[in-house]
């Protein structure tokens, strides 16, 4: 098991390298130069060239890429922003806690609401409760995030004055972004829980458990839910991954100084190096959460744990079967 964890941690590195390469390549072929933008309209060609040389933007593809990675390894630095002249790592670290807090709370709340709701809907299938819950879930999943954010802002902040319009100067400012980020995951979690539970409840062993005379509560919570968990964990994992990376739209509307906002501004201002830094951090978060999700699979399902622990030829066979799941 430990070997599996270590192997996965090592696998993180090529993934991160890969994501950086992809985004770097996309940006490389763009012909908008941040040097020109920073220097302004009165700059001469020579000045633009000089600035670009200073930032290493005129070097060949591999040199730039190599330099980027070497800088990470040797100095632990992600470079300096072209536009703001501050270290990229510092800018990201200043903003990351805000995004993480919102993401964590949004994902946790959505799980805490979505799973029980889904279970309830599955147990009481085809009753009014089921229809209402499903309908609400679908509706929540269908509202575009920016519409929701704007509506909340107008109603809760401007008309009712209950919450601040934007920013996170007080804890009240966190409420609307959390709701905005949490609505879609609630929908997904609820629906996935419901369908997974429904599928599990139909299994024979549930019928056996009931026939044995076990209490309905035990049947549902101890037997059905545990077995239904795998797809639910998939969704929950995805939820955490997306939430922790920051919602670009809600951070833009509520003016949260977070990772999403930094991504947004770095893309629109062609601040390529900050863009790369954000991508790296976001990819790291996503991969890390995926790893944790996979570990939770192992904790929940001993068969999967066995797969992970297997090595060598057995691992390959297991892997093929696992992929088919």
């Amino acid at each position: 098991m430990i070997r599996y964890i270590i192997r996965r941690l090592f696998l993180l590195i090529p993934i991160l390298i890969g994501t950086v390469v992809i985004v770097f390549t996309i940006n490389f072929f763009s012909d908008i130069s941040p040097a020109r933008l920073v220097l302004g309209p009165t700059a001469t060609e020579e000045q633009v060239e000089a600035k670009e040389d200073e930032w290493g933007l005129n070097d060949p593809y591999l040199v730039q890429l190599g330099r980027y990675f070497w800088r990470i390894v040797s100095q632990g630095s992600l470079g300096t922003s072209y536009i703001y002249n501050q270290p990229v790592l510092k800018m990201i670290m200043d903003r990351l806690p805000n995004t993480l807090i919102i993401g964590l709370l949004a994902a946790t709340l959505s799980v805490m609401i979505g799973i029980p709701l889904g279970i309830l809907a599955a147990i009481k299938q085809n009753t009014a409760l089921d229809y209402i819950a499903t309908f609400l879930a679908i509706l929540c999943g269908a509202i575009p995030p920016f519409v929701l954010c704007i509506l909340m802002q107008l109603v809760l902040a401007v008309r009712l004055h209950w919450l601040p319009v934007s920013g996170i100067r007080s804890w009240l400012g966190y409420i609307m972004p959390i709701i905005a980020c949490g609505v879609m995951p609630v929908a997904m979690t609820c629906r996935m829980t419901r369908s997974s539970m429904l599928e599990t409840i139909r299994q024979d062993y549930i019928r056996t458990a009931r026939a044995k005379g076990l209490k309905e509560g035990t049947v549902i919570w101890k037997h059905a839910l545990k077995n239904a968990l795998i797809p639910i964990i998939t969704v929950v994992g995805m939820t955490y991954a997306m939430s922790l990376c920051g919602s670009i739209i809600s951070e833009a509307i509520f003016n949260i100084p977070g990772l999403g906002n930094l991504m947004n501004s770095s893309i629109s201002q062609k601040d390529y190096i900050t863009n790369l830094g954000c991508v790296l951090v976001a990819a790291f978060i996503m991969s890390f959460v995926t790893l944790i999700t996979d570990l939770i699979y192992a904790a929940v399902d001993p068969r999967i744990k066995a797969q992970y622990a297997a090595t060598g030829k057995r691992a390959r066979t297991y892997k093929r079967k696992e992929a088919a799941v």
Partner: peptide
């Protein structure tokens, strides 16, 4: 977006 246009303008 503003950056692209400014760039085209300057070029």
């Amino acid at each position: 977006d503003a950056a692209t246009v400014q760039s085209m303008n300057q070029a």
